[in-house]
């Protein structure tokens, strides 16, 4: 593959195979690697650790899909993308799926022709202020300077919120979280706004997190989820049901620890269907019978992934909130495996 790329470039890409694109699923299987687009670095969601290993909540989705398709959670090529490059990277086929805290919106789905396969995190845009300002509500922010981390739909929500409440503000759009945070800490802005999860993650890294407060207003709905290109439904199904498998696994109490035991002797027919001991769901997707089992084995079920990367025991310390299972009053709900 590499060779043909190099020579393709050498001979001005002239003789490169122009074969009609096969399905993404076949491509991934043939390549033996999943190309997954992630952010350039947002702790908790996708960031390389000190050894250069990618880890995080979005990364776990990529790994689960790789495990379901290829049987190996490490067979992923992580492609860092910025807010600007992510959609082209996906549209042009450079990546097979995008798991980069991307908000599911009408125009992205319909106009840009992407398929959002589900929601792995229900987020909303929030505000962080220093406690010494004594601000208790976002409606008190008249005239404030607001640092925005550009990327999702942040700028638009902010403009809408301030316009609706008829108050003024000074936007300072900043590209990366690290720079926005530096501006905020130096007092160059009064408020820092981005997705509430991002705010929590950022605050966790401060020297004195206690000096900063998150305001109660959540000004937008930000359903973040993985997405694929329009027009390849087979591949969309694989990603969608891998995500659903993680969610269902939590609902049914299947964890990475007890999965072997569950697979061997379960009375619950849905668990059996999920783990491939009964029925032929895997075959329908074009995968092995044990696809979901492999996906869950990599990082655990949805709850485990959440707890390990962004949960309350991590420095980021997000509570489940909206992202609890529907059985616990949250919004996380998977269609049945049947």
């Amino acid at each position: 593959m590499k060779k043909s790329v190099i020579f393709g470039a050498m001979t001005v890409a002239g003789l490169a195979a122009g074969a009609a694109a096969a399905g993404t699923l076949e491509d991934v299987k043939a390549r033996g690697k999943l190309n997954c687009g992630v952010t350039t670095g947002l702790v908790g969601f996708a960031a390389p650790d000190a050894n250069g290993e990618w880890e995080g909540f979005d990364v776990a989705v990529c790994r689960a899909v790789a495990a379901a398709v290829l049987g190996d959670g490490s067979a992923v090529e992580f492609v860092p993308t910025t807010g600007k490059t992510r959609f082209t990277a996906l549209a042009s086929g450079e990546i097979d799926m995008l798991a980069r805290n991307t908000t599911w919106t009408f125009s992205r789905d319909v106009d840009l022709k992407f398929t959002f396969v589900g929601v792995n995190y229900y987020d909303g845009q929030g505000f962080m202020v220093p406690k010494e300002l004594g601000v208790s509500s976002a409606k008190d922010l008249d005239g404030a300077t607001v640092c925005i981390q550009t990327g999702t739909t942040t700028e638009l929500n902010l403009a809408d919120f301030f316009r609706a409440n008829n108050i003024s503000y000074e936007p300072v759009p900043i590209e990366t979280n690290a720079e926005a945070q530096q501006q905020y800490l130096a007092g160059a802005c009064d408020v820092y706004t981005t997705d509430a999860s991002g705010l929590a993650a950022t605050r966790a890294t401060f020297e004195a997190p206690g000096d900063h407060a998150l305001l109660p207003e959540i000004i937008s709905k930000e359903p973040l989820g993985p997405l694929v290109r329009h027009g390849d439904d087979a591949w969309g199904d694989v990603v969608r049901w891998t995500l659903n498998a993680l969610i269902t696994a939590e609902e049914l109490g299947v964890t990475s620890a007890n999965i072997g035991e569950m697979a061997a002797n379960t009375n619950n027919p849905e668990v059996a269907r999920l783990l491939g001991t009964e029925g032929n769901l895997g075959e329908m997707l074009g995968l092995d019978a044990g696809w979901a089992k492999a996906a869950i084995m990599v990082g655990g079920n949805y709850g485990e992934v959440f707890a390990k990367n962004i949960g309350e025991d991590t420095p980021i310390g997000l509570s489940r909130g909206l992202n609890a299972q529907w059985t616990n009053g949250g919004l996380i709900y998977s269609p049945p495996f049947r």
């Binding site: 890409a13 195979a17 009609a20 694109a21």
Partner: peptide
């Protein structure tokens, strides 16, 4: 953001 559209479909440079 643009150059990949100039290559033949599926070449993935």
């Amino acid at each position: 953001v643009m150059l990949s559209y100039f290559f033949p479909p599926g070449s993935g440079v």
